[in-house]
């Protein structure tokens, strides 16, 4: 397992996305879903990016998905860390970090599950680990 995890910088929420971070505090991952066109979207917003309807809902995601791509930053940082896009089972992909894996073992298509990590300053954000 990786020995040390990077300290995660805090996000700066705004009034539109505050409910997402409120849900993170309860270890719940929210995505956007539109009642008008039926499509999921991410990052979640209050206007559907697919049809511009304002009939959008916050929906709790299952919290499982697969790695679409990833890259580990090795240089110029205090602790190496891995950024990734994870495609959720709901069909949308989100940027995140992958944690809790042995170096050299990650692969595209690997199944992962959400965890929540406190950032510097306390706000929690979703990260993913091998399922």
């Amino acid at each position: 397992m990786t020995t040390q995890e990077r300290a995660i910088p805090a996000p700066a929420p705004n009034p539109e996305n505050q409910p997402y971070f409120d849900a993170c505090a309860r270890d719940t991952l929210l995505v956007g879903k539109c009642d008008a066109c039926g499509e999921y979207h991410f990052y979640p917003r209050r206007i559907c990016p697919h049809c511009l309807s304002d009939q959008v809902q916050w929906v709790a995601a299952r919290g499982t998905g697969t790695i679409y791509t990833y890259s580990t930053m090795h240089r110029g940082v205090p602790v190496p860390y891995t950024i990734a896009y994870v495609t959720l089972d709901e069909g949308v992909s989100m940027m995140t970090n992958i944690v809790g894996f042995a170096p050299g073992t990650l692969r595209i298509g690997q199944k992962v599950r959400v965890q929540f990590r406190a950032t510097e300053g306390g706000i929690k954000v979703p990260v993913f680990a091998p399922a």
Partner: peptide, 19 residues
Amino acid sequence: PDMAFEFPYGMATANGYGM
């Protein structure tokens, strides 16, 4: 609008292109 969903994860230039 995207910043809160990316900045915590350390999206820089090099690792974005790495992905």
